[in-house]
């Protein structure tokens, strides 16, 4: 399969995540990831988009940007938000905040599991502050690590 590059912008509204999840599921299928791995990829996509919408972009007009790169061996997803604009909050999820979320995560808690799932399921998971003051989340799934 030749390299392909897809860019999307969706409103900061979780109802738009399902169509993107379906697209990524089809791409994973075309790349011949197993069904199990395809389900993992869709779950990770759901979690990072939901976080970007609910925590990373305060206004629906901002939207979130997605970049998907595929080649014969991998599927890479980048999700970019513009950051919250609240005066009291940093625009991106800082390492300190990440540590706090992880430390407080418990099976009994209702939230805080999304980043844990992404870390558990993606082969590569990186988070960085972007120029807009928001967060870039990049995940990669390699076909060679298929089980």
């Amino acid at each position: 399969m030749e390299k392909a590059h897809i860019e999307l912008k969706i409103p900061s509204d979780v109802s738009y995540v399902d169509p993107v999840r379906a697209l990524v599921g089809k791409l994973a299928e075309r790349l011949e990831f197993s069904r199990k791995r395809g389900a993992d990829i869709q779950l990770v996509l759901d979690e990072i988009c939901t976080n970007a919408i609910n925590h990373g972009s305060a206004h629906t007009t901002d939207g979130i940007d997605l970049r998907i790169d595929v080649d014969a061996n991998s599927l890479e997803i980048l999700v970019r938000d513009t950051g919250r604009k609240d005066a009291q909050k940093d625009g991106w999820i800082t390492p300190a905040r990440l540590s706090e979320i992880e430390a407080n995560r418990s099976p009994c808690s209702e939230g805080g599991h999304g980043i844990f799932l992404v870390n558990s399921l993606a082969d590569v998971h990186e988070m960085a502050r972007n120029a807009a003051g928001g967060t870039d989340v990049r995940v990669i799934f390699y076909r060679k690590l298929e089980d």
Binding site: A39, L43, E47, T50, C108, E110, G111, H113, G114, L117
Partner: peptide
């Protein structure tokens, strides 16, 4: 066919 952590959290919260 798909469930995310938000939905799992809702079920856990109500069960508790």
């Amino acid at each position: 066919n798909h469930i995310n952590s938000t939905a799992v959290g809702a079920l856990v919260g109500v069960a508790k």
